[in-house]
Structures are given as structure tokens and as C-alpha cells.
Amino acid sequence: MLNIDALMNCFGNSACLVTQSATGLIIGMLLFLVASGVTLIFGVLHVVNFAHGAFYMIGAYAAYSAYGVTGNYYLSVLAGAVAAAIVGVLFERLAISRVYKENLLMQLLVCYAFVLICDDAVKIIWGAEYLAMGIPSEFRVPPLRIAGGVVPPFYLFLAGSALAVAILSVILIRYSRFGKIVRAAAENATMVSVLGIRVPLYFAALFGLGCALAGMAGALAAPVRSLTPGMGLSILIESFIVTVIGGMGSIPGALLAAILLGFTRSFGSVGFPLFVDGAMFLMMVVILVFRPQGLLGERMVR
């Protein structure tokens, strides 16, 4: 099961080291983009969005259709994010907002229902067959060679944009007027509404923003994924592991955990290929037992 030799060889070999490290970062960044949406929504609205994978899927499918029409990858990424945001706002207004005050179970159920409906809706609209968008022509180039390691330019773009967008949204929440109002409203909605601010709209906008992050991740990755109904599930599970390990509500925590997970995958597949998934769950168990608030999370009072 354990292949220490292979792992040591890899550490001693610059080609392998560079390739696998880049792999870890690439996997991590995309995970981070999805997980930052989960953690943003939880951190402010205290809702665990179990439907996040569905928005990832919506983003990917919307990008696929937009790419078919425009042939422009960047426009399709935008389309994916916008589509996810629109569906997200509708979902928040029509369903989630009605269970803000309910317990975790009710929220879980509403999300579960939404995922079921979304998967079937995608099947009705786009069909059950897997779809492939194909790699945009500008990225159909030979990979870069860095110190013997191999790094595809497309993945550099992917990781870069994921990081940039996630950081931008943090800045938005921390320092903009919008962000301040939303956080204040989450603390005391009555007080903020007394100031003449329409709190529900701000909540919906924030929820939409979180979903847009997932949608954008789906759209960004669409060229190298096969699109199928239900594709959001595995990404949902991984982004929850990231969120829990990093700390529910902490975006820097999500970044740290996403990179940690990325490296577990990339070096794990060299050193302990059969236990990569198991290792991720084990990390989650250890964190929950010894530090339930996560690596960088704040201790929640109930």
C-alpha cells in the first residue's frame, strides 16, 4: 500500500517534484474556488449550502452552451458564473430564505430537493449523454517545461483566475459597503432593516455571489471535464472536506485546506495511491476530533 521509495525518488527528482507540486496547486486552486463559495455563504448567512455542487454543474453546462454559440471561452466562463448566480438568487428567494430560521435538517432537505430537481432538469434540457466542450484553440499548445517539470499553460490560467476571483470576493466582503451591510445584517437583521436597507435583497445577492463562484469554477473547468447530470457530487464532497478542514466560514482556511488537499492528491498518488481518498477522510476525522472549528476557523458558540 505504501510506496515510500517512489515518494522519496520523487522528492529527489526536480522534474517529478515540480510536476507534482504544480499538480497539487492546480487541483487545490479549483477546489478553493468552489469551497470559497460554500464557506462565504456559511460564514455570513450561517446556511450550509449542500446544493453547491449543483451550481458547479449549472455553470459548466451554461458555459458549454455559450461556447457553442459564441465560440469564446472567456465569454462562456462569464455566462457560467452569471447563470449560476441567477439560479442561485431564485433558489434563495423561493426556497432557502424560507428556512433561514429553521434547523439544519430543513436546510439540508431543501438543498437535497434542489439537487434532485437540478440533476433531472439538466438531463431534460441537455440530455443524459456526457458532453465535452473541447479545449479552446488558444490553449491547445505544448506544455511548459520548468526545471524538467511539465505544466500546461491552460492550468496556469485556471489556477490564476480561480485565486484572483476568490481573493476579489474576499475583498468585496471585507471592505466594500456591500460586504459591510451584509455582515451587519447577518448579525442583526432587524437593526439593519430599520436603517432603511432591504436586507432580503442583500442576502439574496450574497447567496448569488457564492453560487457564482461555484458556477465559475464549473465553467473554467468545463473544457477538461466531461459534463454529465450529477457531476456536482464529487466536487461537493471535496469542497466540504476543504471547508471543514479549513474552518467553516474562513476563506484563508479554505485556501490552506485546498492546497493541503491538492498536495495530498498529487503526492499521495505517488506514495500511497490506494489510500488517497481514505487519507482525505482521515484528515477530516482528525481535524473534527481535535480541532472542530477547523485549522483557521473561529470557535462557534453552538
Binding site: 426556497a95 428556512v99 437535497y112 430537493a113 434542489f114 434532485l116
Partner: peptide
Amino acid sequence: THTDLAKGVAILFVVL
């Protein structure tokens, strides 16, 4: 074959 759709709608009805 769209049992998921039916289940989803049923859940939303019960919860909401």
C-alpha cells in the same frame, strides 16, 4: 424515469 424530479418536488412541498 424522472423519479428524482418527483422526489425533489415532494420534498419541497413537505418542507415549504
